[in-house]
Design a protein around this nucleic acid. Structure first.
Length: 741
RNA sequence: GACCGAUUAGCUCAGCUGGUAGAGCGCUACAUUGACAUUGUAGAGGCCACAAGUUCAAGUCUUGUAUCGGUCACCA
């Protein structure tokens, strides 16, 4: 771009049009190489021993395109990154994308069914994976383009994908290490089975929906002495016990007795047992125990030493028993059992209750608890943490993963903004159970376990042609948990890992605290003895102008690309920052974006005015500042101080608002207006002093605003005379310093 | 059931460690072709959810109540 020193660049005569500049500017920044801190050091922009500042981008799923939530994330992180880069830190922001195993696989399965009427099994594992990879590749490219449109100053040379070779190596290594430490084990127990997605899922992927349901009270047979209640009569053909409270006087006589009968054509044998967990006040005070289809019942059976656990429902949520229930879906079987109970005169009561029904987060399918052989991470087992940098945990001490996760936050190795989420985090850990990490889907990291006959080996490479690999893949959050260090080269001991880990900030949505934030703390604590990040900044959900969730059904979604096209990336960014405190949902309306486009134009015109009025200034002179000039400069410093401390405190919404307010209502409304007579007056000293003041105000304002609105500020910078600048690129100019009053 | 958050101008929200209310948008009036595909100036509009308490002083701290929202847990 050309520089003009003596005249106003013609470009300033028209209003600022973002679309004319943004793509060129992004290319200018990207080509400079300064998104990569190594180049900043090489070119003497950053000191080689400067403090590091690193963020790893939460990798968007390769399931489609970016939405406003992503745009907000990019805006917040880019502000932090640009600010710190201008502060002279070794600043690294790593881009990436996430395979999002279940989400992506099911999306491709849907497309496949629609366009070719085929299932993944029709194609076979290899061919299907080829299709998923093609889809992911397309999606990846459009996501990267959109990310660039937002102005994100990411170091693309370090781009990572959760399924690429280095990450594969990290994931495999992590699995093998944890297995060898006894933290990963295989066990047969009740899992959350998603019949729709045909896979197990972890507790955190289960959602609860409140629904009305019928609660039936009945007897198994005429001769059975105790009534029980259930909302799922169809499971009762799988009962092996009835549990009562040990002190319940009503049922003392029956404890230990076994009854055989035929229930809805199925022979059933039930033993009456005592269990302290049974609430004698609830219902009849007796629980029908179905060990194979309820986690609680499984545990009750465990305690009672009952080993018989007949499975009566299969992976397709269909009955596996004979007789009238044969092959029925669970809902149909439920009605059939109730009909039978009525006919037999066994049904005693039917009432409506509200209950929470479990559904799968991704597919929406109703969870069917089933016993299955799966891989788990033990969060309560002691292991030796050889090396620890986490305060509260000494190197070489015996800890559990739970203790590690608690220590990381409790001892302030990690700060969370807003702070109230600490409590949410602790609360979650208290209730944490072992993590089921195996999934019955194909797209993802295949578990590095090999079988031959009854033998089992855990290692990355195949032990030989006669060994068969585990067909399950890993929960996507297993690999995501490694993200802060797998992106930096782990398990290799790279310079990046030494310099940039723990990362400085993790910025993500509060809805993902358990899935991701907690798992990263677990993985980083275990594998490195470090926290994954020193600060967590949690943003809210982007909502519409009326505070409603953006959704396709409400037709109130706003596409970031549309906003960028209409109003520019700068306006889009600022609209997602101002009024958005961490942890709070962010209202966004098109009006708001439009308002900030006007602001971009305001800066444009301020610059035009100032640049026009300082062309004849000779900066070699020393300005003789009036009292008012001093006051203006001091006020400018105060605003620099305010913006700087607010960014340091992660109060970006305050910093942005302050910069906006100062530039519009102080600089433009007051300072520029009062300068007009001085600039056109005949007091040469006063005029030059004011020119100097205006120059300072403009240069400083452009710098202050650059992290928030990088495009318009850099455009102006590129067209300002070299004599005003300390760097040819505003992106790597020095952040203004200030002295406190 | 447990925990968390919100409740301030018509709308969306700021008000940090307590000193008797602010911004943006909207509205009304006036001015202006100006650095400004407009902008500026001025104005109207609030028992800061309710109650009690601490204090010389409370949107601001404590307790309780109500309404809305959220997270987690869950009994058949």
């Amino acid at each position: 771009m050309s520089e003009q020193n003596n005249n106003i660049p013609e470009l300033f005569l028209a209003p600022y049009n973002p679309d004319d500049h943004e793509d060129n500017l992004y290319a200018l920044w990207n080509d400079s190489g300064y998104f990569n801190p190594d180049n900043c050091i090489k070119d003497d922009i950053t000191a080689p021993d400067a403090e590091p500042f690193s963020i790893v981008l939460p990798p968007p799923n390769v399931t489609g395109t970016l939405h406003m939530g992503h745009a907000a994330m990019l805006a917040i992180e880019d502000i932090l990154v640009r600010y710190n880069r201008m502060q002279g830190k070794r600043t690294l922001w790593i881009p990436g994308t996430d395979s999002a195993a279940i989400a992506t696989q099911s999306k491709v399965e849907k497309i496949l069914l629609k366009t070719e009427k085929k299932s993944r099994h029709d194609l076979g594992r290899d061919e299907f994976l080829k299709r998923v990879n093609e889809f992911a590749e397309d999606s990846k490219n459009s996501i990267i383009n959109q990310t660039k449109k937002m102005g994100s100053s990411l170091d693309w040379s370090r781009y990572a994908f959760t399924l690429d070779e280095p990450r594969y190596h990290a994931v495999m290594t992590a699995f093998v290490n944890m297995y060898n430490d006894g933290l990963i084990y295989r066990a047969d127990r009740i899992v959350n089975w998603d019949p729709k997605g045909q896979t197990t899922i972890s507790d955190d992927e289960v959602n609860y929906e409140e629904r009305q349901a019928a609660l039936y009270t009945f007897k198994y047979s005429k001769d059975f002495p105790i009534s029980v209640a259930t909302t799922r009569p169809e499971t009762k053909v799988g009962d092996t016990a009835v549990a009562v409270h040990p002190d319940d006087a009503r049922y003392q006589a029956y404890i230990g007795k076994t009854y055989d009968f035929t229930f809805c054509d199925v022979p059933v044998s039930v033993t009456v047992i005592a269990d302290k967990e049974v609430d004698p006040e609830f219902g009849t005070g007796a629980v029908g125990v179905t060990p194979a289809h309820s986690k609680i019942d499984w545990d009750i059976a465990d305690r009672a030493g009952i080993t018989r656990r007949p499975q009566v429902i299969n992976e397709y949520a269909k009955m596996t028993v004979g007789g009238r229930l044969s092959n029925l879906k669970v809902e149909a079987a439920r009605e059939e059992v109730v009909t039978w109970l009525r006919a037999e005169g066994l049904l005693e009561k039917e009432e409506t209750v509200t209950q929470n029904i479990s559904t799968a987060e991704r597919s929406g399918g109703i969870i069917e608890p089933l016993p299955k052989l799966q891989w788990w991470i033990n969060v309560n087992k002691k292991f030796t943490l050889k090396h620890s940098e986490i305060s509260g945990i000494a190197s070489g001490s015996e800890v559990t993963l739970k203790e590690l996760m608690i220590a990381a936050v409790a001892h302030e190795n990690i700060d969370i903004f807003p702070e109230r989420f600490k409590r949410v985090y602790f609360n979650w850990i208290e209730n944490l159970n072992d993590w089921c990490i195996s999934r019955q889907i194909w797209y993802g990291h295949r578990i590095p376990v090999w079988f031959r006959g009854g033998e089992l080996k855990v290692q990355i490479e195949s032990p030989g042609a006669d060994w068969v690999q585990e067909s399950d893949t890993l929960d996507t959050w297993f690999s995501s948990g490694l993200w802060t260090f797998s992106t930096l080269g782990w398990p290799n001991e790279t310079d990046d890992l030494k310099t940039y880990h723990p990362t400085t900030v993790l910025e993500t949505g509060y809805d993902i605290v358990f899935f991701w934030v907690a798992r990263m703390i677990l993985m980083s604590g275990y594998h490195l003895g470090q926290v994954p990040f020193k600060n967590v900044y949690l943003h809210g959900l982007v909502r519409d102008g009326k505070g409603r969730k953006m959704s396709k059904s409400l037709d109130n979604t706003i596409d970031p690309l549309d906003m960028i096209k209409l109003y520019g990336a700068d306006a889009t960014r600022l609209s997602l920052i101002i009024g958005a405190a961490p942890g709070n949902d962010m209202p966004l309306s098109e009006d708001k974006v439009r308002a900030y486009k006007k602001f971009a134009n305001k800066i444009w015109n301020i610059s035009r005015f100032v640049l026009t009025n300082i062309v004849d200034a000779d900066w070699n002179q020393t300005p003789k500042l009036s009292e008012r000039d001093d006051e203006i400069l001091q006020d400018l410093q105060d605003n620099v101080a305010k913006v700087t401390t607010d960014i340091e405190k992660f109060s970006l919404y305050l910093a942005g608002e302050n910069a906006y307010h100062y530039i519009w209502h102080e600089l433009a409304d007051k300072i520029l207006e009062e300068s007009k007579p001085i600039l056109s007056g005949d007091n040469a000293d006063a005029k030059f002093a004011r020119q100097y003041v205006l120059k300072e105000c403009l240069v400083t304002s452009l710098k202050l605003l650059h992290p928030f609105m990088p495009f318009v500020t850099e455009t102006i910078w590129q067209h300002a005379p070299a004599s005003l600048k300390d760097s040819s690129l505003l992106m790597v100019a020095k952040w203004p310093s200030y002295t406190k009053r």
